[in-house]
Write a protein that binds this DNA or RNA. Sequence first.
DNA 1: ACCTGAACACCGTTCAAGT
DNA 2: ACCTGAACACCGTTCAAGT
Lengths: 228, 228
Amino acid sequence: MKAAAADQPAGNRRRSRRAGRPLAPVITADSIADAAIGLLDESGDFTMAQLARRLGVGASALYNHVTGKEEVLARVRELVSDRIDTDVFDSVPFFDALLVWARSYRDAFARHPATIAVFATTALDGAGRTTGMYERVVAAFLRAGWPEDDVMTTLVALEDFIMGAALDAVAPADMFQLRSPQDAPTLSRVTAAARRSPSGTRPAQASFEAGIEAMLTGLRVRLARLSA
Amino acid sequence: MKAAAADQPAGNRRRSRRAGRPLAPVITADSIADAAIGLLDESGDFTMAQLARRLGVGASALYNHVTGKEEVLARVRELVSDRIDTDVFDSVPFFDALLVWARSYRDAFARHPATIAVFATTALDGAGRTTGMYERVVAAFLRAGWPEDDVMTTLVALEDFIMGAALDAVAPADMFQLRSPQDAPTLSRVTAAARRSPSGTRPAQASFEAGIEAMLTGLRVRLARLSA
DNA sequence: ACCTGAACACCGTTCAAGT
DNA sequence: ACCTGAACACCGTTCAAGT
């Protein structure tokens, strides 16, 4: 009745590894984070059991490499932060760079909705890539002449909008598609008009562009006022 | 060994109710939503078991009144939406009203972080108070002369910012308090400057005010451009 | 109709046993 | 050090039994 253990070393399809320490580690903290981001991309969430299954180990094996799910999410955040473009600040004018940065920031997180709440509420722990991202953006604010004591306030305001837009990007397209339009005639009229409009872009996308444009317009005014 | 069942009818301290249908219903969909919002206020989250315990029933009893946790959250959203001030649109100029509305919107959700993601991603289902809130705000946009096919785009852009700010309001105050400041000297300098600044308001609050001001400034420009 | 209490499939995490 | 597999306390939800 015993199934033959015919696994190739590289294969992870079938379950067969006897208990005890393997000759070489099967997983690493990095491979765990990679697998997590894969699951996040595919289904928007992950469990420790799914993670372990994908890596071909038991769930408890994960805890030899990470302290728990929270650390996995923190590591995912680092990987996601890495996709945010901060190089633009060296090549184009400040406000133009801010627009590119904001778009890449929103896109990076819109693909991983499960990380948004964690990202927004977990403290930075030092030397990571997320900290590096902030360091470069803050430096750009200062080079643009932004008052030192207003940089964080403004940067976080921008982040608030970006995170809200990332959350919205995963909302159902028909959020405002009412069953009984007569209960909210004005809302129905306006959502219908939006659908007819020749935007081409998806609604969430259009709102992001409208919002970031308004915000940057307002921030130009703010900078002028604070500089005066 | 059997404990005496000495409960007052109104008391819900001790567990004692024999199986079978009670003479009068013990809970209702409304009392469930009320209890949920209480737990949300106290600890930022709730489980069906906690909800049942607070109501003095078994967890399975909840399912006689709601279909599941999702419905509970939807009902909480309705209660929260009810706290958003839309009356201002009748009493003060449009952009001033928008500011008051945005503040009350953010405050309503900042107290219930667990509902933010649900609110942002669940479709409206018709005749509720949330729909009513939208109906009144949309009407105000139109009265202010906003182009019909741009109302939803702009309203959602505002909501993106408000929701992001609500999420930020529950973030730890020391998010940017690095363990090793030398790894990010510019970021450290700027966060230190922000702490010294005589704002009086909390950082998340200051960012909300800066952001909504910038956004409304930008939207005034947008309205002028679209009207031209 | 509306409760209780047992049960189910799952969750994240711990830990002894094995190499 | 790093795996397996059993176990724990919990989660949301279902359902038979009781009135």
